[in-house]
């Protein structure tokens, strides 16, 4: 899918003084251990980069050294499982889910 890259900011007109849209990312288990935090807010200057779940995962993976390929990770947005091609919106709360191991 196109638009997955984290690109420089668009030149589309933006409201003057507008706050950049943010996402909240929550971390559990292996991802929490590697990110060394439970939660963070990310700000996006580029709406396209914000919208793409694969691009977001790849950038977090590079930043924190997550060892897992996308194929072994599930995604939840606002406490519901979603497909990887779901587009994110400002204010969404995103959780990447490493292989589960209950029981």
């Amino acid at each position: 899918m196109s638009g997955n890259e984290l690109k420089p900011a668009h030149t589309e007109p933006v409201e003057v003084g507008a706050v950049h849209p943010t996402l909240t990312i929550e971390y559990f288990a292996l991802f929490r251990s590697l990110a060394k935090k439970s939660e963070e807010s990310l700000e996006f200057t580029d709406a396209e980069a914000l919208a793409s779940i694969p691009a977001l995962y790849d950038s977090l993976r590079a930043r924190y050294g997550f060892p897992l390929e996308r194929a072994s990770v599930h995604v939840a947005v606002n406490d519901a499982y979603v497909a990887w091609d779901r587009r994110l919106e400002p204010g969404d709360r995103v959780v990447f889910i490493p292989p589960v191991a209950g029981g």
């Binding site: 897992l68 599930h74 519901a80 497909a83």
Partner: peptide, 25 residues
């Protein structure tokens, strides 16, 4: 972390059968 940190480089997990279509949950 069981199943995760034990992952050797090159060892790829396949995600479990969680339906990716939230409508099917």
């Amino acid at each position: 972390w069981v199943n995760c940190a034990a992952c050797a480089p090159g060892h790829e997990h396949v995600a479990g059968p969680i339906p990716n279509d939230p409508g099917s949950m």
